[in-house]
């Protein structure tokens, strides 16, 4: 049985039409982009909705615009497109690396950045890399655009700060500038893997001194999280071996990892520190 067999799917031609459909549908307005998460959920317990609105390939959602300080990435951009979009690579290397670890080639070709964020899984591969940019989500509705910081967008386990009538149109992501980024995903295997833990970092060092540090983790709590205590600890300090060790220990002390089928809390706690060390040792 195909999961979409009994779903009435509408295919609006542009964002405006999609927004109108969403406004009318209210809480029943299921959006469908690449379908790589939803199609799986609909055959494994979550009842499929009666109707859905496809935002796949909506022109307004498929654009990437490289600007002076930041980059606008449409929510409908696929992971494969990000991997191939060389002009953004040097500005957002962690995000590109993360997109390249999603599922496998087939899923990357179909899954979208907006879908990955809206699905709001704590294991969403792009989430930590997005979080360290201090970027924002642009939510479109008939009333206009609302801009929400990514750090506030995931409000709980599989919950996002978006109204039923809103559609994620794009992400505004500041370029990394002189900072260094790093991304690591520890999966259960090398492809088609949900992570045990992921870490992304964007750290800027000037003259041996940490100017700013952003470190984010996935698959460790109910939502993707920033290690704000570690970040605050690092900011403004000279980068020394002792600082790295202290940051590693602080990360292990302050992180509150979950235990599930994919890993243990002890391992996640330990490896959190190791990944913080890894980020600081590779600046």
């Amino acid at each position: 049985m195909r999961p979409t067999e009994n779903i009435n799917i509408r295919f609006p031609k542009n964002l405006q039409e999609a927004l109108r459909l969403q406004a009318k549908a209210g809480t029943r307005g299921q959006l469908l982009a690449g379908g790589t998460d939803l199609m799986v959920q609909w055959v494994s317990g979550t009842p499929p909705p009666r109707r859905a609105t496809s935002v796949w390939n909506l022109p307004e959602l498929c654009e990437i615009e490289v600007r002076d300080k930041d980059i606008l990435i449409g929510a409908g951009v696929t992971h494969a497109f990000l991997v191939d979009a060389t002009p953004i690579h040097r500005h957002l290397p962690a995000l590109v690396a993360a997109a390249g670890t999603v599922g496998a080639a087939q899923i990357q070709a179909r899954g979208t950045l907006g879908g990955n964020v809206a699905n709001a899984s704590p294991a969403g591969d792009t989430a930590p890399a997005l979080l360290v940019t201090d970027g924002t989500v642009l939510l479109a509705s008939l009333g206009g655009i609302r801009e929400v910081p990514l750090t506030q967008f995931w409000t709980g386990y599989r919950q996002i700060d978006a109204r039923p009538d809103e559609i994620i149109q794009a992400f505004r992501l500041p370029k990394k500038g002189a900072a260094r980024e790093r991304f690591r995903k520890i999966g259960t295997r090398k492809a088609q893997a949900i992570s045990k833990i992921m870490a992304a970092s964007r750290i800027r060092v000037r003259k041996g001194q940490i100017v700013s540090a952003a470190i984010a983790l996935g698959s460790i709590a109910a939502t993707p999280v920033r290690l704000t205590q570690v970040e605050d600890f690092l900011a403004g300090k000279p980068l020394t071996a002792k600082l790295i060790t202290d940051a590693e220990q602080l990360a292990q002390k302050t992180v509150q990892p979950i235990a599930d089928i994919r890993s243990t809390a002890e391992y996640r706690r330990w490896v959190t520190g190791r990944l913080v060390r890894d980020a600081l040792e590779n600046l």
Binding site: V40, A104, T188, K190, Q192, I261
Partner: peptide, 28 residues
């Protein structure tokens, strides 16, 4: 190195979907 499955407290195998029962891919 991967395939981990046990009888859970509810009497069911704890890894009962392809999402949780992990076998090697070609890359592995």
């Amino acid at each position: 190195v991967m395939e981990k499955m046990a009888t859970g407290k509810d009497g069911l195998y704890d890894a009962s979907r392809l999402q949780t029962y992990i076998i090697p891919t070609a890359l592995d």
